[in-house]
Nucleic acid binder design. Structure first.
Lengths: 191, 191
DNA sequence: TCGTTTGTCTAGCAGTGCTAGCCTCGACCT
DNA sequence: AGGTCGAGGCTAGCACTGCTAGACAAACGA
């Protein structure tokens, strides 16, 4: 019995080790550097071991993405909590935290919201980390929604921030004017 | 002299043929299916011929992207021209045309605005097609900008639409509510 | 007609994701 | 305690990727 438990624990540890290594490698050298061979070398196992934990490389990327959603949720929640009595300030803090997250961890952000994935978004069986991240957005939008549907407005705000994050990150927008765009967006979208 | 001209003409034709084949293949089967071998087969030349026209696969993707920007510029300009005396209607038409473009040609859109590229965006030496597409946005935003800087506001609107397009396209937003999000965005961002 | 240039092709390199099949080691049962 | 057996790791290999060196042929200028 206890042997079985120890094995499962070791398995879970190695699972986490793989995800952490993939995330680290991606953030350091970009996703194109994350090959099964290099990843296997990092975790000091041979390549096929990865496939006994994950169905394929895509599944590893997805695991990293879900992991990242947990981090994002935490970041956003903290940003909101810093301004408990000022909805507008809270919104601004959350928006800035979101864009900062995308800027600080571009590869992680890419896995979460850009790369093709089969993580279920916006459905009841979404991973809890994902719901938490979206929930943090909803909480900060709610006081400012007026008569509009909160979830729809939240999705719209999220989309706008996502657009800013990705277009800025891929240098498709003028690098200065970054703050001006955010100011404009928040002032006009959620006054 | 004329021989030289004929050769250059043939080269240009083949250049266009390659770009068109890449675009078609990407749109039909996705970018992951666009390999140099399959592309060479499509244009009925051997693989190394591609490399006498383009520095590498990335350059082919970039050429497709620039090509697509020309199409997008045309689409947006037409959408605006359909409502010459109603700025709000023109904006809505352009926004819808943009999202429709992204939905209809997802692979092309991906090459233009998602994939990593070294096309210079937002600088004086951007390709003319790109400037034209952005110009169409500027034209439609201008009458509604009020006191805000037109270019900054245009970038913000574009970002928001881009966010909607990509998150919708990757099924990260609830599929219904699509129109509700667009309504909300336009009503709040550019009333 | 004879070089020379221009262009295309075959063949191959190093690297990718993924898997078949062997082999070792340790947990079990007698 | 010793034999059995299975979980789990490994080596080796497949079919594919982007890209390139070097052979070869066709078309050009003299």
């Amino acid at each position: 019995m206890s042997i079985q438990q120890r094995r499962e624990r070791e398995r879970a540890d190695r699972h986490r080790l793989i995800v952490a290594a993939a995330r680290d490698l991606a953030e350091t050298e970009g996703w194109e550097a994350v090959t099964t061979r290099r990843l296997a070398e990092r975790v000091e196992y041979s390549q096929p071991v990865l496939y006994s934990h994950f169905k394929g490389k895509d599944a590893i990327v997805s695991a990293v993405a879900v992991d990242g959603c947990g981090d994002l949720a935490k970041t956003l929640t903290e940003a909101r909590a810093a301004h408990p009595d000022n909805p507008a300030e809270a919104l601004r803090a959350v928006a800035e935290a979101y864009l900062d997250f995308a800027k600080t961890c571009p590869a992680l952000y890419d896995a979460m919201f850009v790369q093709r994935t089969n993580i279920p978004f916006g459905t009841p069986d979404s991973p809890q980390e994902l719901k938490a991240a979206f929930g943090a957005f909803v909480a900060v939008v709610k006081p400012l929604a007026g008569q509009d549907d909160v979830e729809t407005l939240t999705e719209t705000l999220w989309s706008a921030l996502h657009g800013l994050a990705t277009l800025t990150g891929s240098t498709r927008l003028r690098p200065d004017h970054h703050n001006a765009r955010l100011d404009l967006l928040l002032r006009r979208l959620l006054p």
